[in-house]
Design a protein around this nucleic acid. Sequence first.
DNA 1: GCTGCAATTGAAATCGATACCACTTTTTGT
DNA 2: ACAAAAAGTGGTATCGATTTCAATTGCAGC
Lengths: 326, 326
Amino acid sequence: MAKIKDVAAAAGVSPSTVSRVLCNGPVSDKVRKRVEAAMARLDYRPNLAARRLRSQHTDTIGLIVSDIRNPFFTAVSRAVEDEAYRNGMRVILCNTDENPDKEAMYLRLMQEERVTGVIFAPTRQMVASIDPQALGFPVVMIDRVSADAATDAVVLDNRRAAAQLVGHLLQQGYRDIGGLFGNTSNTGMERHAGFSEALQQAGLAAPARFVAPSVEAAEQAVLQWLAEPARPQALLVSNGVLLLGAVRALKSAGLHWPQDVALVGFDNEVWTDLLGDGLTVVEQPVNEIGRTAMAMLLERLDEPERSQRIVVLQGKLVVRGSSLTL
Amino acid sequence: MAKIKDVAAAAGVSPSTVSRVLCNGPVSDKVRKRVEAAMARLDYRPNLAARRLRSQHTDTIGLIVSDIRNPFFTAVSRAVEDEAYRNGMRVILCNTDENPDKEAMYLRLMQEERVTGVIFAPTRQMVASIDPQALGFPVVMIDRVSADAATDAVVLDNRRAAAQLVGHLLQQGYRDIGGLFGNTSNTGMERHAGFSEALQQAGLAAPARFVAPSVEAAEQAVLQWLAEPARPQALLVSNGVLLLGAVRALKSAGLHWPQDVALVGFDNEVWTDLLGDGLTVVEQPVNEIGRTAMAMLLERLDEPERSQRIVVLQGKLVVRGSSLTL
DNA sequence: GCTGCAATTGAAATCGATACCACTTTTTGT
DNA sequence: ACAAAAAGTGGTATCGATTTCAATTGCAGC
């Protein structure tokens, strides 16, 4: 494979000049044309490893999520990647499966890659221990931040979104409302907080359960809950994965919404409006989350010393049949 | 950030020795311990760019798909990434949006990255023009290969799968069967071939339509088709994305399956068993596809001269309510 | 105690680009 | 027309690791 020296020889110039052509440095048009012709003739491809080593910038960002198969992360990833490539950056994607060991391992990998920055959806254990200073690159957290995080972040207004769902259920006449939340992420905790507050303000109890963030765990929990005598009239479910589990549970128990139990949740996944009269959900602005995270990372790189910033985005309540009046 | 020289100085050895510790070369236990202590003390992280440049292997593979938001590719990607990381390799993910220009651009990027190999789901236009020799790295194609491809490949037995669906519909008593296929991928073409053959063998017509691979295009096409007087009794839809469009179309037209029209398709997405009595589909072995593709890439790297190999996997017919007897 | 071989270690070259500096040529201003 | 500034070009050092080769050490066998 041709290298810069070969191109230089073929074009009758120095390697420096070829490099300048590559980087849009000052080169006369005549020479630039000759060099470009030589590159084309030799089918030259600059070696990015060499370039990164010498120039000390990798133009690469890390994107660390729990599981790309979660449609929320799929959508966010896609938005991040588009925005990254648009800015001439590469993305390294990592799945942690909510496993703090994997998180640590991938953060280490990011250091070895000398990434320019990282966009990270951390588990609850990890949130507080992320220190961009020690890591050596800026971090933008998404989806699961707490107030004590030391980085920029893009989050949904989880409390408010949960409260909105509760408010909607109250307005529809429901009083016995249960909440199901993921136990590994801060997001679950915040949604739980919003859920509790809203119900307490209404003077109602706020029975909540916490499960591992998997379809199966949610399905089992819901099955069990609905089999109990004190079954809630309505169920609020904290994210799309758990919501799928809840739907499966209702289906296998032969229960229907909203007659047997009303169901509301988070994440406007493609199937939520196909089921019966549709599921009422809070839709997250997934594209905006991804785009914003990438934009914040770029801004931070531009201006490393600016103060920490947290962008809070609002969800959109999408009312469908699963939460109608009894 | 500490470099190998600093570690060497701290441990009182030469950089060569540190490098040997890093690469499990021959080092005495005593020295190895000292070096490892020094690394830990300095929080040393090897610079992968430097390592790649010098060692001439990047341990990185490219994964080029049309859109990670397509659940089929999501699942395959995840499998590829797991298998890659398990073998100490990094993955660079690219979305081409079925756009040949983007495909070319990303292949070029892969050359600049000096990737070890690429796993690629190409558009129909691209399939024949991929030449691993010219590219400089081995390629394993997935999902959309034709007989004239010059690379290793992992594919579903698309003809047979389509024929299976048709056979199932025939057995259930359907005779007017229409097919909807994506017009950008070879996969669509093969499924169409299997569909046509099966119907011709039964002495029946095989009306088929081709659309852009998007939910919207499929929805519109199905709406229009079902509004025509010569509406088919059953519809076979070529992949999960189009299937979603078809479901939306039926819903908005107020039609029900299987009474108004039977519906079968590809890709066992999470929502296919939640709708009514469920959708009959062929499930692709997504994990196996990803794992196998990665494994084939590794084998090819191990043995560059071995003859081209195509692994054909079988889909699994999952019968549900959408295709029951009239 | 000496020889020979294997196991360790170090010195220096190298991977392929960019950065920096110095030098030449061209352009600009007066 | 001349000085000063700007533009264009080449030479060389350098990024941070691995690799190669040579040198040293340790140890077994006699």
